[in-house]
């Protein structure tokens, strides 16, 4: 396949863009106290934070898939003002500073919150400071990435396949599961990856809504922040570990799910 040459200035700009990503990474790698990587990796606190991060981010992604795909479907079927409003509401968490998102979550799900207060009164249920709160915070911040990706996929979909399935007698549920969803696979996959990555790095909403307790709500970004104050080397090592795990999962998943080189 022959491709048009990319103009020189664009290549230079692309290189500058790439440098912006690569230089901070290089900084982390060059400055890392490599002799401390193994002790830090095997320290129980690291395993606890890492385990919690992986658990929370994957759970948040699963919740986002369950709620986000239907939401994207709804968005793609609306138009005009309603669509504008729905889309603005969906993308709001992307522009909101995460700390503000955390406060908003407290005002909704906290003991004094809109939903939280009746829950607390009826069942004594307290959401803040629990792992559930960490998952909610991550879902809140990360789900828009999935919704946007899936909605884009839906808009680019060739609806003749769905029409054909319907004409052959398939019900709406069956069309969704057997035709729409498989066609959406690339969009769902890339949306899920973005969503998961955002959830994994989440800090502001989590610390505000869920607090910071090792083993319960202290995910790796929170552990990095706390460590940065007392032992910066430890923070660098933790960041590297998070990077390594993310890279491994991203590369591994890509091959398995899409079968692309």
């Amino acid at each position: 396949m022959s491709q048009a040459r990319i103009p020189g200035p664009l290549v230079a700009l692309a290189a500058a863009g790439l440098l912006l990503f690569v230089l901070p990474l290089a900084g982390l790698i060059v400055r890392a106290p490599w002799n401390q990587v193994w002790p830090a990796l095997t320290a129980p606190e690291t395993a606890t934070a890492l385990g919690l991060s992986v658990f929370c981010s994957l759970t948040a992604t699963a919740v986002a898939l369950a709620l986000g795909i239907p939401l994207a479907l709804l968005l793609s079927r609306t138009s005009g003002t309603i669509r504008g409003i729905l889309r603005a509401l969906t993308t709001l968490p992307m522009v909101l500073p995460p700390v503000v998102g955390g406060v908003a979550l407290l005002l909704a799900f906290g003991r004094r919150g809109l939903i939280g207060a009746p829950l607390y009164a009826a069942f004594g249920l307290q959401i803040p400071f629990t792992t559930t709160a960490a998952v909610i915070a991550e879902t809140f911040v990360a789900m828009p990435f999935l919704v946007i990706a899936v909605e884009g996929g839906l808009r680019g979909l060739d609806h003749r396949y769905e029409e054909a399935a319907r004409a052959l007698g398939a019900g709406s549920w069956k069309v969704f599961l057997r035709v729409t969803l498989p066609l959406l696979r690339p969009a769902v996959f890339s949306g899920a990856v973005l969503c998961w990555a955002r959830a994994l790095g989440e800090f502001g909403a989590t610390i505000t809504f869920a607090g910071n307790l090792p083993g319960r709500t202290q995910t790796v970004p929170l552990a990095v922040y706390v460590a940065l104050e007392t032992r910066p080397e430890g923070a660098i090592v933790l960041s590297l570990i998070l990077l390594g795990v993310s890279l491994a999962i991203l590369i591994g998943l890509r091959d398995r799910w899409l079968g692309e080189p």
Partner: peptide, 21 residues
């Protein structure tokens, strides 16, 4: 047994004044 170990005092204060702690 604290529910949270806040990285800033303002975090502690905020959670008490919001009634969450």
């Amino acid at each position: 047994h604290p529910a949270s170990l806040e990285p800033q005092v303002t975090g502690v204060l905020g959670k008490v004044s919001l009634g969450e702690a």
